[in-house]
Simulated assay, not measured.
Amino acid sequence: CASAAAELQQLVRSLGGDPETSSSMAGDLHRRWVDLKSMVTGKDDEAILNECERGEDVALKSYRKALDKDLPADIRVVVQRQFQGVQRNHDQVKALRDAERARS
C-alpha cells in the first residue's frame, strides 16, 4: 500500500500537483476500528479478517471510481495495475477469512 501511494504521489508531482501525503481519515479510522475490534473480540481471527476485507472493499471502490474517470493513458495504466493488486489482496484476505470460518 505504501509503495502504491508513493507511486501515485510521484505521478501527481510529475503533473505539477501537490499530492496528499497523509493517509486518509477513513483509512485511519478503519485501522483504529480493527485495533479496537481485535481487543474486544480477543483477537478473533475471523472478525479481524472480516474488517480487513471491508477495508479492501473500500480500496476497490476508490480504484473503480478513479478508473471511471477520463484518465490520461499513462496514468490509467498505473491505476489499473494497482487496482489489480488491490483485487489480489482482497481475494487473499477473503480466502483467509473463508478458511478461518471453515475451521470454526
Rank of each mutant, 00 (worst) to 15 (best):
E56V: 06
I75G: 05
A26K: 03
R103C: 02
K94M: 09
P72T: 00
P72A: 05
Q9Y: 04
R101V: 13
V93L: 07
Q92N: 09
Q10N: 12
Q10Y: 00
L8E: 04
R76M: 12
A47T: 09
D68Y: 07
Q80M: 05
A6N: 08
E7D: 10
A4E: 05
R97I: 04
K43G: 06
H90G: 04
D57T: 03
L49S: 00
S3R: 05
R13Y: 09
L71Y: 11
S14P: 01
L67Q: 03
L36G: 11
S22V: 13
R13V: 15
D70E: 06
R97T: 06
R103F: 06
S3C: 04
R31F: 05
G85A: 10
V79Q: 08
H30D: 02
D18A: 11
G55R: 04
K43C: 05
F83H: 14
Q87V: 02
E53K: 11
G42A: 10
H90E: 04
T41M: 09
R76N: 10
V79D: 07
A102L: 15
S22H: 10
A95W: 06
W33N: 08
R76Y: 07
S38G: 09
R103P: 04
E51M: 14
G85S: 12
T41I: 10
S14I: 00
S23V: 09
A2I: 08
A66D: 05
S22Q: 14
L15S: 12
D68L: 08
R103E: 13
I75M: 10
S14C: 08
M25G: 06
E20H: 01
L60K: 06
R101W: 03
R64W: 09
E53A: 11
L11Q: 11
A95K: 15
E56Y: 03
R13F: 13
K61M: 00
I48R: 14
K69D: 06
K69T: 12
V78L: 08
L67Y: 11
A5E: 09
V78A: 01
A102W: 02
D74F: 15
D35K: 14
L29P: 01
L60T: 03
R31Y: 02
I48G: 05
L11R: 07
L71V: 11
G17C: 03
P72M: 12
V34N: 01
M25Y: 14
W33M: 13
S62A: 15
N50D: 09
S3W: 06
E7A: 15
R31D: 15
A26W: 07
D28H: 14
R76K: 15
L67H: 06
A95S: 08
I75K: 07
A99W: 03
P19A: 05
V12D: 01
D18C: 03
A73H: 05
D91Y: 03
R88T: 14
C52E: 13
V12F: 04
D74M: 08
C52L: 15
L71F: 14
R101P: 04
S104A: 15
R54T: 10
Q84F: 03
W33R: 08
S22A: 14
S3E: 12
E53N: 01
E46M: 04
D28T: 13
S3V: 09
G17M: 05
M25D: 11
A4Y: 05
A73K: 13
S3P: 00
